[in-house]
Design a binder for these strands. Sequence first.
DNA 1: CTGAAAGCGCTTACAG
DNA 2: CTGAAAGCGCTTACAG
Lengths: 330, 330
Amino acid sequence: MVTIKEVAERAGVSTSTVSRALSGKIPVNDETKQKVLLAVKELNYQPNVLAQGLKDGKSRTLGLIIPNVRNLVFPAAIRGIEDMAKKHGYTVVLCNTDEDVETEKFYIDNLRRRLIDGFIFSTARPGHEHLLELKREGFPVVFLIRQMGEDVDTITVDNYKGAYDATKYMLLRGLKNIAFINGHMDIFLYQQRFEGYKKALEEAGFPFKEEMVVHEVYGWEDGYQAMTNLLKKNLKIDGVFATSDPKAIGVIRAIKDFGLKVPDDISVMGFDNSDMAPLLDPPLTTVSQPFYEMGAKACERLIKIIEAKKKPKAKVEVLPAEIVVRKSVV
Amino acid sequence: MVTIKEVAERAGVSTSTVSRALSGKIPVNDETKQKVLLAVKELNYQPNVLAQGLKDGKSRTLGLIIPNVRNLVFPAAIRGIEDMAKKHGYTVVLCNTDEDVETEKFYIDNLRRRLIDGFIFSTARPGHEHLLELKREGFPVVFLIRQMGEDVDTITVDNYKGAYDATKYMLLRGLKNIAFINGHMDIFLYQQRFEGYKKALEEAGFPFKEEMVVHEVYGWEDGYQAMTNLLKKNLKIDGVFATSDPKAIGVIRAIKDFGLKVPDDISVMGFDNSDMAPLLDPPLTTVSQPFYEMGAKACERLIKIIEAKKKPKAKVEVLPAEIVVRKSVV
DNA sequence: CTGAAAGCGCTTACAG
DNA sequence: CTGAAAGCGCTTACAG
């Protein structure tokens, strides 16, 4: 790699001048500048980012910590982050934790040694209070999708209203016995979705029934199992609200395997509007989380925090969660 | 961050000694070593990776260049790479190019300035000869999934045999009119799959027909369109071999929308065995590429190249592509 | 406006 | 075995 020294020699100036001509922050005589720029071009000089980083303690690198890239919801978010990072000259390091706290801590440590400039986490949940600590230390942190309190900048969706609207929509379509297949209740967004569901039922005069609700369901296999169990209980279910697309996929499969039809016999509502939703059979009616935009916003926010002179006050940004009507609800 | 200087002071030795005690490569008196280790522990010292990198020109970071994370086939591969990188103390930067050469070059430049140690590319195809150049320069490079010649280390799958076997399998199941929905023929693996298809047909005494083959199809929308066009031509198709799972998804959708059944009226074979394949309706019979393992192997190979004293000769590793029988073929 | 010098946090060849 | 010094490639306060 060609270094600043070689450029300086070729341009007949000191390395300081080269540095200044390139940074643009400090005035340099125009003629000198031209000489430098010429030498830079001729040698195809590219400053060494590690050396720059060592100087000012920044690496122009962002850490993205998620449970698992293979989860349907992340690729779109990653893309949003990536594109925004690129636009601002940042690079992003991807880390999968499988929800494991130790793995998460390992990555945080590891990346801090690399002078990472900030983190985006999609892993917030009880047991991960060290993330709040990181933020308190003054380290740039943004939460994406999952929220934990109000003290960390967060990009999320209106999970309560999304679930409320979805349930109400199903009710309006004439469904009367709507089961609820939910995720882990220690994750805030699943609490909110549950609240939305309950509220809509209540307002419609059909208070929710314990036996129609299953929590702690994760992924499509689990969703399949949960739905199969429900089906066997003969509860006259005519609709299911699955609080994620993967769960909905398992639910639909279970209904079909039980010999019933979606939506003719049982309607299914998902949550996520992941890339797969339109490809299912029937195409999935679901609540949309705009993952790409959310990722882009989270990244933009993080960069703003990193580059701010004084840290702005944390803000939780709640985007609307809208129903995308397709074919899985009557 | 605590620096090596503080550790040295606390342990009452020089920074050189701290460095040596930690590296382990150079002998240090056992007692001294213990003092150092204690100080390291007490201060929770973590060496600054940027500073280390500046010294030996390495960053312990790998660049992964793919067309798009949102393509179904990549998440599993990424996970394999990630897990292996973590095991060896490397970090990976993810870059999406959308197949654009300029974007790819931008990332390569950008990452080289960050002293990236090596690259994994899943973007090889004509027009990307600069990747071969990179390798020729002595830069550690591995190709994943897509191959381009024999001069770069590559982890791929036996695309010819996979396609041959899949076609033969369909033939054996009694199918006689098998259409072929293919990707861009400038990508080597699509050439190979096409060859495999032709060979199997030929051997069975049904030489392939031009009107049954569509090239340049990308993604499920395209697959839908291609299949719809084929269907309208009334070619008595009883089977379709789509050379990627996304295309197969579009093909199945098109067949259903045409009022026909899969596999009763038309069988569909995919290629990839992506995470979605078992979730389709019907579950997709497809040729398996073991993405996770391929990613892990590519990463392992890259690290081996990076850490080798003298560069090993490039090797193209071809893994078997096996048929995963599910329900989309009679 | 420009150069020489110091320093970012490490590692390692050179002495001892 | 250990320390002082030099150096990795930059940037920037200090002089001029």
